[in-house]
């Protein structure tokens, strides 16, 4: 028996050892995820240090972007990023929620899965496809039909005439915002649909039971109940829109200036980096572009953190 006891002990020890190794391996991989994000932050700060120490805080407040005199400021790209994303959200949120209402309340059951899947496929299309489509199909269409009409319609209206001032390039702020709206639509729809599904049927049924119409149930019961989740989805989509690169790079026009007109070419943070990084000569130029990346990273990190926090709150309520 002692021999068997000994081999049993050895086996148990071997099991314990391999288990400890495997556990350490998986834990290491989990920690690596944290290290990755930390590494991104540190490398961006290190890379942008020359620019930030040269320009200081005026980097964020200056509109200048001159590679020849090596004067760089981030105001124009920040402005373009925020304006395009904001317009995209304004366009995409009502449509996205509308599709979610359609899918949860109106759509005939057999069509629900295919249509839901089609909308999610929109999310899977690479952004460069939206870019090439925007440049060759969408922008010329806007340039020849929509934009001249809008310019003609508003040219006598004070305020709006500077917002929609010509000439119609086709590319520019508004075109980028519309492409972004198409791109973030699926995110808003699928998250809104998911949070709509967390509404207890009893709540909806009691509202229907006292004679509410579908719209009243949606407006007075479903949307108030899921408000936090919808906001989370909108913030998530905003995070996507802020960081979206390729689609915008194609249609924004890459002009470092802030103009009142939404039809004017402009630039965003990501489009500036994508367009200029490989051609940037000199440490200060490169470093300024990395500093732009750092600003984008900080903005999106805050927005995404808020989004995740809001979605966590509705998750815990659904679980409770």
């Amino acid at each position: 028996m002692p021999a068997a006891r000994g081999s049993r002990d050895a086996t148990v020890r071997r099991f314990a050892l391999t288990d400890a190794i495997f556990r350490a391996l998986t834990k290491g991989a989990a920690i690596l995820v944290l290290v990755l994000l930390g590494g991104v932050a540190i490398s961006l700060i290190a890379g942008s240090w020359p620019a930030l120490s040269t320009f200081g805080l005026s980097f964020v407040g200056s509109e200048a972007w001159n590679p020849v005199t090596e004067k760089f400021g981030a105001l124009a790209p920040i402005y373009g990023t925020i304006i395009t994303s904001a317009i995209a959200i304004v366009i995409a949120v009502p449509i996205g929620i509308g599709i979610a209402v359609f899918l949860t309340e109106l759509c005939p059951r057999p069509l629900r899965r295919p249509i839901g899947m089609a909308v999610e496929l929109l999310a899977g299309i690479p952004s460069i496809i939206y870019g090439i489509w925007g440049l060759f199909v969408f922008a010329p269409f806007l340039q020849t039909t929509v934009q001249p009409f809008i310019i003609w319609m508003f040219h006598g209206v004070p305020g709006l005439n500077s917002l929609f001032a010509g000439p119609p390039y086709g590319i520019g702020l508004l075109t980028s915002a519309m492409i972004l709206a198409i791109m973030i639509l699926p995110f808003i729809t699928s998250i809104t649909k998911d949070v709509f599904d967390t509404v207890p049927s009893v709540l909806k049924e009691s509202a229907y039971g006292i004679g509410c119409t579908t719209w009243e149930v949606t407006r007075r019961v479903v949307i108030p109940y899921t408000r936090v989740g919808i906001m989370g989805g909108v913030m998530l989509a905003l995070g996507r829109a802020l960081g979206e690169t390729m689609a915008v790079t194609f249609v924004i026009g890459n002009a470092h200036r802030i103009s009142a007109s939404l039809f004017a070419p402009a630039t965003t943070i990501s489009a500036t980096i994508a367009n200029e990084f490989t051609e940037a000569v000199g440490d200060l130029y490169t470093s300024s572009l990395v500093a732009l990346g750092l600003i984008l990273f900080i903005i999106t990190f805050i927005i995404l953190a808020i989004a995740r926090y809001m979605l966590l709150r509705i998750d815990s309520r659904a679980g409770a």
Partner: peptide
Amino acid sequence: KLTTVVRFINDILLSAPSIIVGLFVYEL
């Protein structure tokens, strides 16, 4: 606790702008 933190950070990485990853690897 580690799992909660990693899940949060991972969700942020999931939607982080991919051009930032490009900059990171450029520096790295």
